[in-house]
Write a protein that binds this DNA or RNA. Structure first.
Length: 200
DNA sequence: ATGTTGATTGGCT
DNA sequence: GCCAATCAACATT
């Protein structure tokens, strides 16, 4: 599994380097896993990233955002729009609110179970969005604040060959709504160019 | 105590 | 393309 030093770096760097790696959830005795093909970085800047949950409350932790301020390599799972769970990985230094949102992946293991979680949708729609992949991998509130570097954990990321830089595309983050510039347009979204499982 | 807003998705026009 | 679903966090009263 990827070790703590991998995560204890700037969010943008971790977001880029997570492309191609394998996210694994050990679930009811089976591995639900996929190749990460799209990520977004939040915070990790001299100025507060106003799109980042950690910038709320004057940049101080709240019960919801506490894990973002904690140690790197932990999961930050939160509920939004009254319906959806979104899965993030905490990065950077403890005390700063940095995280990488996993936006899309390509199923590689446990596909029978993912299909059940996402039925009757076609395969690309199992995991081509941040709330879709949490459904497919059965991730929810109970997975908030877990250590992805723990030997006995149920969620971790496995190493895999890096995606060649010329195949990595970047652009503005998705769904930021009323967030002011420059945060609205800063290109902190990363994806594997042309990959069919990238979100639309 | 009440009102507003979302790091989204899926269904309908 | 537009909009409802559905609720916790946060801001405002």
């Amino acid at each position: 599994m990827l070790p703590l030093p991998f995560y204890a770096r700037p969010a943008q760097q971790v977001a880029r380097d997570l492309l191609g790696k394998t996210l694994v959830h050990q679930w009811q005795g089976v591995r639900l896993a996929g190749r990460i093909v799209e990520t977004e970085a939040y915070c990790d800047s001299a100025e507060p990233d106003l799109a980042c949950h950690g910038s709320r409350n004057g940049g101080r932790p709240t019960p919801r955002t506490a894990v973002m301020f904690g140690r790197a390599g932990h999961s930050y799972v939160y509920f939004t729009y009254g319906i959806h769970w979104l899965f993030n990985i905490v990065t950077g230094e403890e005390g700063q609110a940095n995280a990488v949102l996993i936006r899309a992946l390509e199923p590689t293991e446990g596909e029978v179970h993912m299909a059940m979680h996402r039925a009757p949708r076609p395969r690309p729609e199992w995991t081509n969005g941040p709330a879709k992949l949490t459904q497919a991998l059965a991730l929810n509130k109970s997975h908030n604040g877990l250590n992805l570097c723990a030997a006995d954990g149920v969620i971790w990321v496995e190493d895999a060959p890096a995606v060649p830089p010329n195949l990595i595309a970047t652009g503005p983050r998705i769904g930021l709504g009323q967030t002011p510039e420059p945060w609205l347009s800063i290109p902190w979204r990363y994806w594997v160019a042309g990959h069919p499982f990238v979100s639309k």
